[in-house]
Amino acid sequence: MARTKEFDPDAALQSALELFWRKGYEATSMADLVEHLGIGRASLYATYGNKRDLYLKALDRYSEARAPGLTRELSRPGPALPAVRALVRRFAEESADEAYRPRGCLVTNTAAELAPHDPGAARRVELSWGHTETLLHAALLRAQAQGELAGDRDPRALARMLLVLMQGLRVVGKASDDPARVRDAAEQALALLD
């Protein structure tokens, strides 16, 4: 007869996500995970696979938790451009916040740390970025159709520019002590929507 798990796999995955988010993939050892989660190494391997598998599951959870909020923000009825502006400003404010800075964004962190040499991580980063770009593009198309955005603007190119800006805000915000740097960059980019 199979043994019953003596821990909550869902809670343990959330706890692993928090540890990876705080320390990064490379700096988190299996010993760190065993200690932080209070779960034996054999149980960790049996439930999640190796450290990379656990990290990718944690990254999936992170992305899945954030996707509905982003969709809600950019898909509300009414004027679309204010929602786009609010999202970019939120990214800037979060990136400039001292409490946020040590962890940053797990997707952005993964892009910098793992994506260049890990196809599974790169695929997840691309899915997250693709989702954000698609939502921005749809919002900008709506803004254009509603007369909020000039007809000669390219909504796809603007969505890509905003995605790159937002990811850049995450990187610079994590490393910079100057909150004006990310706020000013966001405002200059938003001026391109006028």
Rank of each mutant, 00 (worst) to 15 (best):
D10R: 14
K57S: 13
A16V: 04
A92Q: 01
L81V: 04
C105L: 08
A83Y: 06
L114I: 01
A122M: 04
D118S: 03
G173Q: 05
H131N: 15
R153T: 14
A31Q: 08
A143S: 03
G49M: 03
E187M: 00
D177V: 09
L87M: 12
L59Y: 03
W21P: 01
Q146V: 03
P77Y: 09
A11W: 03
S128V: 03
L56G: 07
L54A: 10
A185D: 07
F91V: 15
L114F: 00
F7K: 11
A27N: 06
A115G: 06
L169A: 02
D178M: 01
S75H: 06
L54F: 09
A186W: 09
K174N: 09
P77I: 12
T134F: 08
A175Q: 14
G120Q: 01
V34D: 07
G168S: 08
A27P: 05
M166V: 08
E133D: 12
L141E: 11
V182N: 01
D53C: 00
L158I: 07
R101S: 12
P77T: 09
A99Y: 10
D32W: 09
P79M: 13
E73P: 06
K174I: 14
L136M: 05
V182C: 00
S43I: 12
H131P: 14
S15V: 15
S128G: 15
L37E: 01
G147Y: 12
P119W: 15
L56I: 05
T108E: 14
E26G: 14
E6Q: 15
G173W: 06
P79T: 14
M30P: 03
I39Q: 10
P155K: 04
T47F: 00
L74D: 09
A58V: 02
D53R: 05
S43G: 12
G168I: 01
E93L: 12
L163Q: 14
D178C: 02
Q188R: 15
Y25N: 03
V164P: 13
R66E: 07
V172F: 03
S29I: 14
L192H: 14
L81N: 05
A112W: 13
L54Y: 06
A83S: 13
R41C: 14
G69D: 08
V172W: 00
S95H: 05
